[in-house]
Design a protein around this nucleic acid. Structure first.
Lengths: 204, 204
DNA sequence: GCGGAATTTGAAGGTTCATTCAGAAAATGG
DNA sequence: CCATTTTCTGAATGAACCTTCAAATTCCGC
C-alpha cells in the first residue's frame, strides 16, 4: 500500500470534512474517528487536538473550492464566457454538495470562532478579486460597460453566490443550480451591460 | 411580581435565544439553564425536551425579525423610501446584532435540521414577497421601471441582505451597515431605474 | 522474514450531558 | 392562614465525551 505520512493525513482531513458536513462545525472527535474507521486515540496520534485538525480540514476545503473555480475558467478566452462559467462554478451543483454544506456550517459558526471568521472573510475577498479581474479585463476590451466599479459588482456577485448556496443547502423548492445561476446572471447583465448569453453545454 | 405562565415561557425563550447566539444551534440544555439562571430540570418542567424549546425560540426570532421589518416601513408612502428603509432594516446594525447572529447559526445548521431549513426557506420567501409588493406598487405608479420581474429582483435583494449579514457577522473589515446598504442599493438602482436617493436621517 | 519505527487499539480517568423524579420551596386562592 | 397547585432544586442514572498511555499491531527497509 505504501501509505505515506502525507496520504494518511489527507485521509484524516477528508474524514474530518465529512464529519463537519454531517455534524456541523462543532463536530466531536468521536464522529471524526468513526468517519475514518479509527478510534479517537488514533486521530490524536496525528494531530495534537481536535481543533487543529478541524481548522486544517476546513481550510483545505476553502483552498479546493477556490482552486476548482480558477480551474473552471482556464482555457476560456472571452470575459463573458469567463463570467458565466465562474458564476456557475460558485454555486453548489445540487442540495447535497458537500463543500458548500461545509462552508455554510462554517459561516454559521463564524461569529463564535474568530479563526473561521477570518478564513471566510479572506475567501470572500479572494473571490471578489477573482471577479474584479474578469470585469476589468472585459471593461478594458470594451466587452463590458460596467455600471459600477468592479469591486462593487464583484462583491455583489459573490454575495449572491453565497446566499443562493445557503438557499440550496436548505433545499428551497424552486431555487436550483439553473435558477440561481440565472438570478445572478440577471444582475451581472445589468451591471456589465452585456447579454451574457449562456452557451448550451456541449455534450462530450 | 405576578409572573404569568406566558411571561415565564418568554423568559425561557429569551434565554434559549441568547444561548444559541453564544453556543450555536447545537446549544446544550445546561447553557440555556445557565442563561436563565435556573437548573436544567427547571427548563424541562416547562418544555418536554430541549429541541422543542429551541425550535420555538428560534421561530420567535424569525417572527420578530420580520415584524420589525414590516414596522420599519409603516407610515412611509413613496415606494422609493420604502425600498431604501427596507434594505437597511434587513441588515444587522453592526457585527454584534444578536438576531442576525442567530439566523446565521440556523443557516449553518439548516442542512442538518430539516425543521430549520423549512423555517428559513419560509422566511426567505416571505421577505421576497415583501419586496415584490414594494416593487410592484412602485412600478404601477410609474416610479420604478423594473428591469426584471419583481420576483427576480426581490430574490436578489433578500439574497444580498442575507449574504452581507453573514459577512458582517464574520466582522469583515470594510463591510459595515452603511457599506452593505449602499452595495445593495446599487443593485436596486439598476433593477428599478430609480436613483433611490438616501434621505439623511432626520434627528429626532 | 527480522527488527525497529510507525500506527492503532483499548482501557482508564475525569468531565459533562439529558433526562427523570422525589421532595422542597414558592405562589395562589379561598 | 391553611390547603392546593405551581415551580424549582438537587440528586441519581446512564451514557458520551476528550485525553493520556501502555501494550498490541502493522508497516517497511533491509
Amino acid at each position: 500500500m505504501a501509505n505515506g505520512r502525507q496520504q494518511r493525513r489527507e485521509r484524516l482531513l477528508a474524514a474530518a470534512q465529512r464529519a463537519v458536513v454531517m455534524h456541523g462545525a462543532d463536530v466531536r472527535l468521536k464522529d471524526i474517528a468513526d468517519m475514518a474507521g479509527l478510534t479517537s486515540g488514533a486521530i490524536l496520534y496525528h494531530f495534537p487536538d481536535v481543533q487543529t485538525l478541524l481548522v486544517e480540514a476546513n481550510r483545505a476545503v476553502m483552498e479546493r473550492f477556490l482552486d476548482n473555480r480558477v480551474r473552471a475558467v482556464q482555457g476560456l478566452s472571452s470575459p463573458a464566457e469567463k463570467l458565466v462559467v465562474t458564476v456557475a462554478s460558485g454555486l453548489p451543483r445540487d442540495s447535497d454538495d458537500d463543500d458548500v454544506k461545509l462552508l455554510c456550517a462554517l459561516g454559521g459558526a463564524a461569529s463564535r470562532y474568530p479563526v473561521y471568521a477570518a478564513m471566510l472573510t479572506a475567501l470572500y475577498d479572494r473571490q471578489v478579486a477573482m471577479y474584479q479581474i474578469i470585469l476589468e479585463s472585459g471593461a478594458a476590451s470594451g466587452t463590458f460597460t460596467l455600471q459600477h466599479d468592479s469591486q462593487t459588482i464583484g462583491r455583489n456577485i459573490v454575495a449572491l453566490e453565497d446566499a443562493y448556496g445557503y438557499r440550496m443547502a436548505a433545499r428551497h423548492a424552486t431555487i436550483d443550480h439553473a435558477v440561481a445561476t440565472e438570478l445572478i446572471l440577471d444582475y451581472a447583465r445589468l451591471a456589465t451591460s452585456h447579454p451574457l448569453d449562456v452557451p448550451a453545454t456541449v455534450p462530450a
